[in-house]
Computed example of a mutant assay.
Amino acid sequence: MRPVDLFRLFVLAAIWGGSFLFMRVTVPVLGAVPTAFGRVALAAAGLLVLVSIMRVRWNFNGLFKQTVFLGLINSGIPFLMFAFAAQVLPAGYSAILNATVPLMAIVIGSTFFGERVGGIKLAGVALGLAGVAILTGAGPLALTPVVLAGVGACLIATACYGFAGFLTRRWITQRGGLDSRLVALGSQTGAVFFMGACLVWQLVTTPVAMPVVNANVWLALLALGLVCTSFAYILYFQLLSDIGPMKAMMVTFLIPVFGVLWGWLLLDEKLSLAHAIGGGLVAVAIWLVAKPERPRITA
């Protein structure tokens, strides 16, 4: 992995690490569906402005439908599931569960996409999962039906992410590729259609009064849409194109690291030896998964 790719991986992890904190601010006030809709709507608007300013050529090379459907899998469903989970789970729990994406990718890749996974990468995934569990150090929650539902929602989201990485390679990269900004814009357009339908359904079936929303909630929603989604997905799709889905998904091991860091810097949370141990395991996991495999010698 090139140094520039590793740098982009860390930047992406820093951004997405903050998304769980932002959701914990917005979801209790706005609700899960409005938060997810606001996130993708702001992201699509931000990408539209960015693509226009940068004068990106509007040529999807016949892949617009693929990017729209990709948005359902890579943004719409996962964002909605994590928003539901934010109603009942602490941010650290969601971050830990988010780190199961590489594990999901290994299972999905080997089962559905013929991906060959060696023992070294499996060891890296195991170390990474152990590292984030130690690192976040979240206290145990009683396994009530509500908590289990939140955990299930997170796992649905990570399964979608696992599929999306391989589908991006199959639908986009292997068909000639596409500018990462257009992929991001098309995917968020698809997510807006999906979340818009969910929002209309909720308003029709369970109408609620507009809550009183303070400035911090609106700022958190703006950050979710414009920074954690618009900008972040441009980075993510470029990484998928450059280093492939397996390595790009290693960003999920780094997300809890930054979640802890933001908590220490912004929420005055204490650091401990567990953070050093967990961070070390995460670093080793990244190295193992990113390490090039030796080619097989055939007779």
Rank of each mutant, 00 (worst) to 15 (best):
M195H: 08
S180M: 01
L219D: 01
V151E: 00
A164T: 14
L167G: 08
A184D: 07
L240K: 08
D242H: 06
T168C: 02
L240P: 00
C154D: 03
A223D: 00
G186Y: 05
Q202N: 13
M210Q: 06
L221S: 06
G165P: 04
G190L: 06
L155E: 10
P211I: 04
I156A: 10
Y233A: 10
V217H: 06
W201E: 00
L185W: 15
R170N: 11
M246L: 15
R175A: 11
M195G: 01
M250C: 15
L155K: 01
Q188N: 14
L178C: 01
C160T: 07
G244N: 14
K247I: 15
A197H: 04
V213I: 15
L219G: 12
V227N: 05
G152N: 10
A164Q: 01
V151S: 02
R175D: 03
R181A: 12
V208A: 12
C154M: 10
F163C: 11
D179W: 12
I234Q: 11
G176K: 06
Q188H: 01
A191R: 06
G190R: 03
R181V: 07
V213C: 12
G225M: 13
W171G: 02
T229S: 14
M249I: 00
S187I: 03
A164G: 14
W201N: 00
F193I: 15
T205Q: 05
F237N: 10
V183Y: 08
P245Q: 00
R169Y: 02
V217Y: 13
A215N: 09
W201I: 11
L199C: 05
Q202V: 05
N216A: 03
S187P: 05
L199Y: 07
V227H: 12
N214M: 04
L221R: 02
A153Q: 12
R170D: 13
S180D: 09
F163G: 05
L235D: 00
G165M: 09
N214T: 01
W201V: 12
A191V: 07
M250K: 01
M250A: 14
W171D: 04
L178W: 06
L221T: 02
T205M: 01
G225T: 11
G162H: 15
A164S: 12
P207D: 08
F163T: 14
L221P: 10
N214V: 08
T229G: 06
F231C: 07
Y236R: 00
V213N: 13
Q202P: 07
I172T: 03
Y161D: 09
G190K: 07
W218E: 02
A157K: 05
L219M: 12
T205P: 00
R181W: 06
L219P: 01
A220S: 12
V200E: 06
L155S: 06
Q202F: 15
V212M: 12
L203N: 00
G196I: 05
M246Q: 14
T189F: 14
T168V: 01
L199F: 04
F193S: 00
V204W: 08
G190D: 04
C228P: 02
M210E: 06
Y233C: 04
